[in-house]
Amino acid sequence: MSLRIIVALAVLTGVTGSPGVTIRPVADSADSAHPNSVPETVEETEIFGQQIQLFEEEEAEEDVMATGELNPKHYPAQRAAKVVQHYLNTRYGSPYRVFGLQRVHSGNAEDVADSRRKYQLEISVQEMIGNTTENCSAEVLFARGEQQRSAQVQASCEALLKIDTKAQEEAFYQQCKMNQSLQSAQYLPDSYGHIEPDMKPLWHLGIVASSFIMLNESTENTLYNMAQVANVTQLPTENDQLKFDYHILLHEMVSQEIIHWKLLFTWSPAEGVKVLQMEQLPHCHDCEKPPNTN
């Protein structure tokens, strides 16, 4: 039985300019027919101001997991590699350092003890704001079965982690701390895919914080991207940590579901992002659809 799924790889950022969506259906061909095929380049798979690709998949055996050497272009390798991106953001991300998956070069999967599955990957990771790319080795362990456990990740990307953003982070921190009025914003990006320059650090901070959710929720059968910051409010704080309340929209691209989350977290240059609360919000049938998620 044939299953036709429309997968729109979403959304946007203002890191490299005003983002937008280009809908370009893939013609039927031998190259596009595999059920696990994904676009090859970061321009077609990432959300950081790049072109977005809309493509079709046909086949009922999409969820069959391969063992051994993986095709880097297919979903099993891509999904595992995307988890590495979320891991790097949770460990090293900031308003001026955001990591994105650029390309999977090779991958291998095997079943291991305790009903887990291990992926070994060679990938390219890009620090999106500074536009610096490095090849990284990574290992991802997924739990299997009914009990939901976060994936365990190890990654070696030494050069990317040496990027110095301390000056920019300290300036943003002092600006937020000294402002008489607390910062707030809605709809990053807006319905035209635009983000004001002074709001970009809040957008980047939302991407980093949302990676905590996506890392926690990711399985072998999911593929998450950050879609939009619906609302962000800076909250009063009594210590050196800035405190933020975010309403974030995530795009789960396998199910095509837009998922609303509430995030309460703190940030400072010294301590990084510390999540205090993650709460999935009820599905809102009447909510306005976020921009350019189609």
Rank of each mutant, 00 (worst) to 15 (best):
S2H: 10
I5T: 10
A8M: 03
L9N: 06
A10Y: 07
L12Q: 10
T13M: 04
T13Q: 07
G17K: 09
S18W: 05
P19Y: 06
P19E: 07
I23G: 01
I23N: 06
R24M: 13
P25H: 05
S29A: 15
S29L: 12
S32L: 08
A33P: 03
P35E: 01
S37D: 04
E43C: 13
T45L: 14
E46Y: 04
I47F: 11
F48V: 06
F48K: 01
Q50K: 13
Q51T: 11
Q51D: 12
I52W: 04
I52P: 03
Q53D: 12
Q53R: 15
L54P: 03
E57N: 03
E58D: 05
E61M: 13
E62Q: 05
M65W: 11
A66C: 05
E69L: 06
P72L: 12
K73F: 14
H74K: 05
A77N: 01
A77M: 01
A77H: 01
Q78C: 11
V84E: 04
Y87F: 15
L88K: 06
L88H: 09
R91E: 10
G93N: 10
G93A: 12
S94D: 09
V98E: 02
V98I: 11
F99A: 09
F99S: 06
Q102H: 10
V104Q: 08
V104F: 10
N108F: 14
A109D: 01
A109W: 00
A109F: 00
V112R: 08
A113F: 01
S115P: 00
S115Y: 07
R116I: 05
E122H: 14
I123A: 02
I123C: 05
I123R: 14
V125W: 06
Q126E: 13
I129Q: 11
I129R: 14
G130N: 11
N131S: 08
T133I: 15
N135M: 07
N135V: 13
S137D: 08
E146Q: 11
Q148L: 12
Q152M: 09
Q154E: 09
Q154D: 05
S156F: 02
L160G: 04
I163H: 06
A167Q: 11
A171P: 00
A171T: 09
Q175E: 07
K177R: 15
S184C: 10
A185C: 12
D190Y: 13
Y192V: 06
G193T: 07
G193Y: 08
I195K: 05
D198C: 08
D198E: 12
M199N: 14
W203I: 00
G206F: 08
F212P: 02
I213F: 05
I213S: 04
S218F: 02
T219H: 07
E220L: 02
T222D: 11
N225T: 13
M226I: 14
V229C: 09
A230K: 11
Q234R: 07
L235Y: 05
P236T: 12
P236N: 06
Q241S: 11
H247P: 00
H247K: 09
L250S: 08
Q256A: 13
E257K: 14
I258D: 04
K262L: 11
K262V: 00
K262Q: 12
L263R: 01
F265S: 00
P269K: 00
A270P: 00
A270T: 15
L276T: 03
E279D: 07
E279W: 03
H283R: 14
C284L: 10
D286N: 13
C287I: 08
K289P: 00
P290M: 03
P290S: 02
